[in-house]
Design a protein around this nucleic acid. Structure first.
Lengths: 387, 387
DNA sequence: GGCTTTACTTGACAACGCGAACAAATAACC
DNA sequence: GGTTATTTGTTCGCGTTGTCAAGTAAAGCC
């Protein structure tokens, strides 16, 4: 089930490790000259001529001869770039009651999307909807190179099995194997937050950073870590479980009975619930609550200040412990940042260890299909690197 | 300043990457047959014959032909092991008022130790005491292969500069360069907790685990992380700063004005102070306090229960975030574990994320010279792997 | 005493990447 | 406007590294 690099069926390109690393370098770091790639990978210029030739001949790399850079001394360089259209990947995010799917190219650009409601969690039903979605996304005559599936729970790309998924009620389910058999395309699983981290690592804010953290806010809180250029996968895939980090011991209750945990302060359902029940307007949406806070409504203002402060403390804890170069904020409700930035940064500074440099924080707007895109990138990354 | 592998001055062994990895595998994982090393490193058996021959001829590897394993079918294997006596390293731990130093062999066995009081923190004085200690530890005619220096603060082995060291009042001090010039031996710096983590990684509880965390208790709290077989070095060397992790918001004050932070609950000075002042016996030592708690004295009992609970919460936070296979407890006051194990495990279980498997915890008794030994291992690791 | 199993060694060979020499394409300089 | 400097990229030969296949060694099994 190796990723096939070929221009004709009879003449496949055999990928060596060096070719792979050149390809990934060009995919992630955009058009680069051979000379530049050679420097970055500590290879000789001649090695690059040899390594790139078969990839160019097979059409996976393009000589982007068009653009001229700023005039410089010496022979002008000839930038190479990956032809992103040469492969497609499907990414599928599973939630308790719906499935979101996208098709992306090699550069993780979304080219099609779809979704399916999930009427239940029995595997045959879910498998059926996944197969439908993949078939809908597949262009006839252009088979997918990989399928990625992400979900909340413990799963890793190295392993075709969902260890546990509380919201889907699964445990030890060999989902990747089943999907792979059903759709005939190599399939990779991963935790949803880690998948989102993979997007940032190769195609987002994390590019150029060998270690960073992604903190997500939404229905829950999550955290993905990249350390030494590697996405961290804990034992059986459990990492970044910051949702129930204790913020104080007198705050609101979360649904698992923790008083004052991060989730009780900063998840979007908690924020909405706090405001809506306190001012007795059960119809308020989360975004209504943000608008109220922006307008200075005292209850909404207070709840969002507390949420921002909780988030700041979470980010400080992550930064103190792992020392990332950067923390990226994302998730369905990152836009709450605009309403609570001050409280966030105050708490972040207060909880950053006094001997540590302040960590840089980047806020990444969240697109609706980002979770599914993450799943596609997981597949892409894992199939490019490990097969 | 590369580490020299030679049996005569005229015939040095040029270490290739593969030879290095074989050597390290044998150093860390004890006597192994060639066949076993080949399997572990994904090399062919013939490669191992070739790679080990020069190392055996030069005397760095020994054929431990003596011991017989359990009788098995096939030709018996011929275990190889590193001759630990072939190199020595000095390790030095700097504190605000003293310097502890050890000499170890390649297997990190301590063979000599010494110390010096530090009358001040000006670099010439400290450099003088370091040089004295190194000279005292050096056996005439057997030069050291490396010197490691560890201290509280931000420093990394890749960098000869102490970025900041609050307790010594240093910042941006090129200590490794200065020591290297003074004693004529390659010198490596690192943070003290990371150095201790290196010991566990290669010669302690961490052997065989690709990811684990070390949590230390003593005058402060610290944490070192190994992720994917690599010791984590944050930006400019700041990681594992768990000392001021908030436990609750009504507890004791720490010296930086945090209420209820981990340090205020679980550091040995805080524990001693809480008990000694409350029962008005300022002469009590930390160990007296442990004894009181063990005897059931209500004040001491309560303080140690709270300390154990704080430590449990810290370990849970580390485990939730990074998903280690194992957490090792160590530090000058780990023996407090015996008096507060129950509170520790209760808090650990309560704060472990509900979807995560319980993490395994190993308690590692702490020897007096362990900090200095850590510095020696830092030197050994860095010089073996990166030069 | 063969047979099987596993460990290790040997020598031929393939591949990978480097160095050196060279061609190409530009700016800088006189 | 020609020469020089500079940088990119290519070609070719070579050394290194590690694999493969074949063979040797040393045990237990029957």
């Amino acid at each position: 089930m190796a990723l096939v690099f070929s221009h004709t069926a009879t003449d496949p390109v055999r990928l060596t490790d060096a070719m792979r690393s050149v390809f990934v370098e060009l995919l992630v770091h955009g058009p680069l000259s051979r000379a530049e790639v050679a420097r970055r990978l500590a290879l000789s210029p001649s090695a690059l001529t040899k390594l790139t030739r078969p990839l160019i001949e097979a059409g996976y790399l393009l000589e982007a001869s068009g653009e001229e850079g700023p005039a410089t001394v010496g022979r002008p360089s000839q930038p190479l770039q990956v032809d992103a259209s040469r492969m497609s990947f499907a990414g599928i995010k599973l939630t308790a009651d719906e499935l979101f799917a996208v098709r992306t190219d090699l550069a993780a650009t979304v080219q099609a999307e779809t979704s399916r409601p999930l009427a239940g969690h029995d595997i045959d039903h879910v498998l059926g909807r996944i197969t439908e979605a993949v078939e809908e996304l597949t262009v006839p005559g252009r088979p997918l190179s990989g399928v990625g599936i992400s979900l909340a729970g413990t799963a890793t790309p190295t392993d075709p099995v969902v260890h546990t998924s509380p919201f889907l009620g699964w445990s030890q389910l060999p989902l990747a194997e089943l999907v792979e058999r059903a759709v005939g395309v190599p399939t990779v699983l991963d935790n949803d937050v880690r998948a989102l981290t993979a997007v940032q690592q190769w195609f987002g804010e994390g590019v150029g950073h060998s270690s960073f953290a992604l903190v997500t806010v939404g229905a829950g809180l999550g955290c993905g870590l990249v350390v030494g250029d590697r996405l961290v996968t804990g034992q059986s895939g459990a990492t970044g479980l910051i949702g129930h980090l204790q913020i104080d011991d007198r705050g609101p209750l979360c649904e698992r009975g923790h008083r004052g945990c991060a989730r009780a302060y900063a998840s979007s359902p908690s924020i909405r619930r706090s405001i809506a029940t306190t001012i007795d307007r059960p119809d308020l949406t989360f975004d209504d609550c943000l608008a109220l806070a922006a307008d200075g409504h005292p209850v909404a203002r207070r709840v969002l200040d507390e949420a921002g402060a909780a988030l700041g403390q979470v980010v400080a804890t992550v930064a103190n412990l792992t020392g990332p170069e950067l923390v990226v904020l994302s998730g369905e409700s990152v836009h709450m940042y605009d309403v609570c930035a001050q409280a966030f940064h105050t708490a972040l500074a207060a909880h950053t260890h006094w001997t540590a440099r302040p960590v840089r924080v980047a806020v990444k707007p969240f697109a609706f299909n980002e979770w599914a895109r993450g799943a596609a990138v997981t597949a892409l990354q894992h199939l490019l690197l490990h097969r």
